[in-house]
Design a protein around this nucleic acid. Structure first.
Lengths: 139, 139
DNA sequence: CTTGACTCCGTACTGCGGTACAGGGTGTAT
DNA sequence: ATACACCCTGTACCGCAGTACGGAGTCAAG
């Protein structure tokens, strides 16, 4: 049983293991998403694998479209074991996504129409894109 | 032919006609998207309907998903009558939108799976949403 | 001629999710 | 023992698209 050089990772290794920057870890600590172990009187803070798992969880939730503020709420619901709250949050998120999808589809339709018109039109006519979006100054 | 009280609108009327705030108009002027008429030695600036049309064009382009920086480019292309450039910009924008759509669809699929699992699961088991995103501290 | 609404100009602040940097202290390998 | 990489703390800054505010000037109606 060799004495470990000190149990746990330093912040740098933690960050690397989670694929984020050191500054990002500190930022999450400031936001209260990650706890910061007490600093020993001499030396650096050490982080256990639990913190690493948490950090990875935060990133997963981010990829799922939750903001850091929402993740803070999720973590709070977690501490309170509030399944219902978490479920509601996810359902609302899906509604958000649906709204965004609608807007983007409409946008795509509009832009596609425009580029199609631009391609078909005689090059002597004004470009429909410019025409729609940038009515020329009266000159 | 009554002498008009002074031709054109003040900035407040211009803003209201376009449905934006006065500060927004000034902001666009600072960004070089709208020209600012010379201020007469005494009195306020006056804006013609050409500026109003331009302002409306900027808002249309924004709604179509262009950033102000991109709109600045569009306006420059407009001045140069560069149809091809405008077309390319729009095509790139469509590719952006497609990428966003892909990401959002994947997200939606993932969240839906999660909420479904949450609804079906026994309430005694840990919530899959919390479980996925917020692995509880070891405690 | 006063009142109130508007304009002008400059600067600073918002929220989001970080990033950068300065000026120290510390751990570890050689 | 010394070099060098890493950590700590605090603060400032990034882009985006505005919004807010202070203190002054000006215009128009009553």
């Amino acid at each position: 049983m060799a004495q470990r050089p000190s149990a746990g990772m330093t912040i740098g290794r933690l960050a690397k293991a989670a694929g984020v920057g050191v500054e990002t870890v500190r930022y999450y600590q400031r936001r209260g998403l990650l706890s910061s172990p007490v600093r020993p009187p001499l030396g650096f803070r050490r982080y256990g694998s639990d913190v690493l798992e948490r950090l990875r969880g935060i990133r997963r939730a981010q990829r799922a479209g939750f903001s850091l503020a929402e993740i803070a709420v999720l973590l709070r619901l977690d501490r309170m074991r509030d399944r219902h709250g978490a479920h509601q949050l996810a359902v609302r998120k899906i509604a958000d996504i649906d709204q965004q999808l609608r807007v983007l589809c409409e946008l795509r339709r509009m832009l596609t129409q425009l580029t199609d018109a631009c391609e078909r039109g005689s090059s002597r006519l004004p470009c429909p894109i410019i025409d729609r979006f940038a009515p020329p100054p009266p000159s």
